[in-house]
Structures are given as structure tokens and as C-alpha cells.
């Protein structure tokens, strides 16, 4: 049975109109979802008696297991910066390299690269897992015993990804800056006290808070985009790859946009 009667092909305007309507509806749905997640997060400790274990496993998977790849990227980034930074004549500026280190590692690429890795690992995993749970009616099974899927499934992922994102960004910074110090010892030895005091002088509260805020919001974006898309599945397992691809596309796009907005917001 079809809901639509046998009408003519809709005009371009009508198609745009319905697309705009759908986009608005989706946005409202996304904000409603976010609001629900926030409410449930607020009640997480009191309501979700069995969600803590899910949270622990989520942090283990998103945070601890991603530590190696994050460290690897941070070390290579720190190495590259200190290598090129040492080619800047000291007469130009003795501490320009520290400014570059802080700008690239702490303010910009640290949070963004960490977010890309987390999106590629955990965002994909969450979207896949949740959409396959919808398809196999596991979500309904949670509903049937009274467990709210948002508080039991989304909130631990939301908290886990966000906490892991913040922690991973800190580890990224630590390993990137420490690696650049170690590499500097081979190129142009600097005493540790000199290196770290110069670094600390360049490391402003603005840079640190920008970095932490970025990782916090990136974590929120990744967990929400992937779980929201995961729940969009309906009936068929063939929907899952489509959903995952859409989640990754939306996730990466949003991360880049949010990164620019936050950088601008903190520049003023």
C-alpha cells in the first residue's frame, strides 16, 4: 500500500522544498537526540546501573587501544617540526620553533589528527555496531527489558569517546613535544631545562584551553554523529555500510568546520 497518491513528477522547487524540510527535520532530530543524550548523561551515575562496564570498555577501546597509533603520529609530527624548525636561522628568532610546536601540536593538528583517528576507529565502530543492533532488533530487546538505549548504549559511548578524546589529545601533546625534544638532541642538542622552559613560556592558557575544548567538542561530535547515524538503520544489513560511510563523511566534515570555528573563537 502506498501513502503517496499517483501525483505528477514534483517540480524542482517542490523537490528543493522537501529537501529543505527534510534537512530541517533532521537537524531538529539531531538536536533532540543531543539533548536527550545530555539529559541521560546527567543521570548516568544514578540511572544506568549496568552502564559503567560499557563505559570502561568504550574507553579501553577508544582510548587505550588507540594510544599506539596516536603516539606514532605525534612523534612523527614532532620530529618533522623540530627538523625544519632548526633550519630557521637563530638570528630570525630563537623561539620561533617553540611557537610553531605549540601552534601545530597543541592548538591545531594535535586535536584534529586525534579526532580523525578516533573517528576512523571508534566512530566507524559505533556506527557499525549500533546500526547492526537496530537491524537485529537488539535495540528493541533493550527496550523490552526497560533499558533506555540512549542511557545504556549512547551515553557510555558518548562519555567514553569524549573522555578518551581529551586524554588522547593530552598524550598526543606529551609525546609530540617530548619526541621533538629527543630528536633535537640529535640535530642540535638543547638542555632539557632550556627546551621545556622555552616551551612553557610559549604555552599560553589560551593554547591549552583551546586544545582541551577542541578535544572535548570533537569527542562530542564524533560520538553523536556516529551513534545518530547508527540509529538511522531500519531493517536491512545492506544499510550498514551506507550508514557507516555517511557517518564518516559527516563526521570528518563537521570536525573540520568545528575546528575552524573554535580556532577563530579563541583567536579573538
Amino acid at each position: 500500500m502506498s501513502l503517496t497518491s499517483g501525483e505528477e513528477h514534483p517540480s524542482v522547487l517542490a523537490r528543493w522544498g522537501s529537501a529543505a524540510f527534510e534537512l530541517t527535520a533532521n537537524l531538529f532530530y539531531a538536536f533532540g537526540f543531543f539533548w536527550n543524550v545530555l539529559l541521560e548523561t546527567f543521570h548516568f551515575r544514578s540511572r544506568s546501573k549496568v552502564g559503567t562496564q560499557v563505559l570502561v570498555m568504550q574507553i579501553l577501546f577508544t582510548g587505550v587501544n588507540a594510544l599506539f597509533i596516536i603516539t606514532l603520529i605525534a612523534v612523527s609530527l614532532g620530529t618533522v617540526i623540530i627538523f625544519y624548525g632548526n633550519q630557521i636561522p637563530t638570528a630570525v628568532s630563537t623561539n620561533l620553533v617553540y611557537t610553531i610546536l605549540i601552534t601545530v601540536i597543541t592548538r591545531e593538528l594535535g586535536p584534529l589528527l586525534t579526532a580523525f583517528i578516533v573517528m576512523a576507529r571508534s566512530g566507524v565502530a559505533i556506527a557499525t555496531e549500533l546500526s547492526s543492533m537496530v537491524v537485529t532488533h537488539e535495540i528493541e530487546a533493550y527496550l523490552a527489558i526497560g533499558i533506555n538505549p540512549i542511557s545504556y548504549l549512547v551515553v557510555p559511548r558518548f562519555l567514553g569517546v569524549t573522555l578518551s578524546m581529551i586524554a588522547l589529545n593530552l598524550y598526543f601533546n606529551l609525546s609530540g613535544l617530548a619526541a621533538s625534544y629527543l630528536v633535537a638532541q640529535f640535530i642540535h642538542p638543547i638542555p632539557a631545562s632550556e627546551y621545556f622552559s622555552q616551551l612553557m613560556a610559549q604555552l599560553t592558557p589560551n593554547a591549552v584551553s583551546l586544545s582541551v575544548v577542541k578535544s572535548l567538542i570533537f569527542g562530542i561530535v564524533i560520538s553523536l554523529v556516529s551513534s545518530l547515524n547508527g540509529f538511522r538503520a531500519q531493517q536491512s544489513t545492506t544499510e550498514i555500510p551506507v550508514i557507516v560511510i555517511r557517518a564518516v563523511g559527516q563526521g570528518f566534515g563537521l570536525l573540520i568546520v568545528v575546528n575552524i570555528l573554535l580556532t577563530l573563537a579563541f583567536a579573538g
Partner: peptide
């Protein structure tokens, strides 16, 4: 898992 995750988060907090 709990110990590993606890250490992971606490160390990050300590760094911050």
C-alpha cells in the same frame, strides 16, 4: 580493563 582505563585517565589528568 578497569585498572587499565583508570590508569589511562588518571595519567592524562596528571599531565594536564
Amino acid at each position: 580493563a578497569q585498572q587499565v582505563v583508570g590508569f589511562f585517565l588518571l595519567l592524562a589528568l596528571a599531565i594536564l
